[in-house]
């Protein structure tokens, strides 16, 4: 049942220009970022003595900044994808179709969640040419590329669940999109609060609640249970709230 909804949503993405525009724009921006990082790295290597060049870490100079920028791009791209998923259906009164069929609200949420994640994976697949380019220019250091992809995927999944919740509380796409952007920014700012607070315990709470510390740890290959619990809990909470919000029709 979930797959039927995933397929319908993916068909809807790819039958409209939105998916192609987003994928194209995302590829262009990430391509430019990657090119600049790579040029700056290779220029840096050539500018310093060979003995010091080994100290310049490729992941630190290129991989981490690249994936941090990808995460930054999601601030706009993911709310653009998720904003219409429920709000548009509310406006067109098409949610009745689901509610008149033997499909639970949880399955509706999961169907839309995996469809949006599928589109994000399609966008990230384009960045798969970057390792080939790296290979082409003679760099063989691919360490931590896998966990970097895992980090952006986990973040994307959290943003999608947040975006779906925002879309479920408003029948106006623009409002849903803006709420999504604000929500993601809030997750980042909570992390910054951790850095600024002088009280250790409070700072730790801020750091844990914010998404950035978990992202950075997974990005660097330090995938811990507390990070996976954080991501899992966040997505579950957003799913739970979305399902509750959809169930509000019965009130």
């Amino acid at each position: 049942m979930i797959w039927i909804i995933v397929k319908k949503e993916l068909d809807a993405y790819f039958s409209s220009p939105l998916a192609y525009v987003l994928i194209g724009l995302f590829s262009l921006i990430t391509g430019v970022i990657f090119f600049n990082l790579l040029v700056s790295y290779t220029d840096g290597i050539q500018a310093i003595p060979p003995a010091l060049a080994e100290e310049k870490s490729f992941p630190e100079e290129v991989v981490y900044p690249l994936f941090t920028n990808l995460n930054f791009l999601f601030l706009v791209f993911i709310p653009l994808i998720t904003m219409k998923l429920f709000s548009e259906e509310k406006r067109q009164e098409t949610l009745d179709l689901y509610w008149l069929s033997p499909v639970t609200d949880t399955k509706i949420f999961l169907g839309k969640f995996f469809a949006a994640l599928g589109l994000i994976i399609a966008m990230l697949l384009i960045t798969g040419v970057f390792p080939l380019v790296i290979w082409g220019v003679g760099i063989r250091d691919f360490s931590l590329l896998g966990t970097s992809y895992l980090a952006v995927l986990l973040n994307a999944a959290c943003y999608i669940s947040l975006g779906l919740f925002c879309s479920s509380i408003s029948s106006n796409q623009i409002v849903a999109g803006l709420l999504g952007i604000l929500g993601i920014m809030f997750l980042w700012m909570v992390s910054w609060g951790g850095h600024l607070n002088s009280n250790y315990a409070v700072a730790e709470i801020f750091t844990y609640v914010g998404i950035t510390s978990h992202f950075e740890r997974v990005l660097r290959g330090l995938v811990g249970t507390q990070d996976l619990i954080y991501y899992g809990t966040f997505m579950f909470l957003m799913g739970f709230l979305t399902v509750k919000c959809l169930g509000r029709r019965n009130w």
């Binding site: 319908k8 068909d11 809807a12 039958s15 067109q92 098409t94 949610l95 009745d96 179709l97």
Partner: peptide, 8 residues
């Protein structure tokens, strides 16, 4: 209002 998807 029939529950229709115009893009389908």
């Amino acid at each position: 209002t029939p529950p229709l998807y115009p893009d389908m």
